[in-house]
Computed example of a mutant assay.
Amino acid sequence: MSKILIVAEHLNGQLNASTAKCVTAAGKLSPEAIDILVLAADAAGIAAQAAQIAGVSRVLTVERAENAQSLSAVLAPQVAKAAAGYSHVFGPSTTFGKDLMPRVAALLGVPQVSDLMEVVDAQTFKRPVYAGNAIVTVSAPAGAIVATVRTASFPAAAEGGGASVEALSLDVALPTHTRFVELKAGKSDRPDLQTASRVVSGGRALGSADSFRIIYSLADKLGAGVGASRAAVDAGYVPNDMQVGQTGKIIAPELYIAIGISGAIQHLTGIKDAGTIVAINKDAEAPIFEIADFGLVGDLFTLVPELEAALG
């Protein structure tokens, strides 16, 4: 019977939604238990949030001053130590998880499955390759497995759980060769792109950074996050942290509106798990229309203001 440990991702005392998505993925194995590991300097608030996720058996906390920042070199030895007795160790396929989980797998001497998007059985999983153009089935050898979960492929587990919270004491020496200097992060009043239920994205057809104001305006009307195609980012219209796609952020909002985006395969890979896709483009043959649920063919500078006006 599987027993799964999930490493919680958090920042500034808030649990990232990716953790609840990992719980959903873990649930596909019908495990004996799903435990969440919270590593922090002060874990109480984060642990309380994790305990509310349905399906979680226990929340294990490790409080150390060294855990004040999520440094993978510092966290990995602790995760590896805590993983004793677990059949699977999951982390999100985010910047946090991609940095941390390979170190954990190396310390444990076990295989890692990256970007897990579907669970077949306890040792077999599906994951995308070639920018999402193909899906491969991978089978890990018997024994413990470390995996990063492609969060766009799984909905967040519901709240309403009541897991117990237990402090964990780990006798593990931490490396000193890595130290925290500073964290620089963009600030926005809009919803976070990777967790927003609605996202409006603009492409190169906007023509300039100034023209992106109509994207921001529509997004504000919808209470949506704002994204962009790689072409728009490369053109300098918006910063690269707004890029959606295989080489940017892979997202799965309930509603995705693509404006002036032709639909290169790398972009489509990043949005294929969206609930409803709406495309606005003057080219009726644009690839984006092949996957769009609703499409508007015409001048975006005319259609977008009309759409915003219709929203009231």
Rank of each mutant, 00 (worst) to 15 (best):
S93Y: 09
T94P: 10
T95V: 15
G97Q: 10
G97E: 08
K98M: 12
D99E: 15
D99L: 04
D99M: 04
M101V: 03
M101L: 15
M101F: 00
P102E: 06
P102T: 11
R103H: 06
V104H: 08
V104C: 07
V104D: 05
A105L: 07
A106E: 05
L107H: 07
L107Y: 05
L108N: 02
G109A: 08
V110C: 12
Q112G: 07
V113L: 14
V113F: 08
V113M: 14
S114L: 12
L116P: 02
L116S: 05
E118W: 03
D121A: 09
A122M: 03
Q123L: 14
Q123P: 01
T124L: 13
F125D: 02
F125S: 03
F125K: 02
K126R: 15
R127A: 09
P128N: 07
P128A: 11
V129K: 10
Y130D: 05
N133F: 01
A134Q: 11
I135Q: 11
I135A: 09
V136W: 09
V138E: 12
V138G: 05
A140Q: 02
G143W: 00
A144R: 13
A144H: 06
A144E: 12
I145R: 12
A147V: 04
A147P: 09
V149I: 15
R150E: 02
T151P: 11
T151F: 03
A152K: 10
S153T: 05
S153G: 03
P155W: 07
A156Q: 10
A156H: 09
A157M: 03
A157N: 06
E159K: 13
E159L: 14
E159C: 00
G160P: 02
G161E: 01
G162L: 01
G162E: 01
A163T: 04
V165M: 08
L168R: 04
S169E: 15
S169K: 15
D171R: 02
V172G: 04
V172N: 07
L174I: 12
L174E: 04
H177G: 00
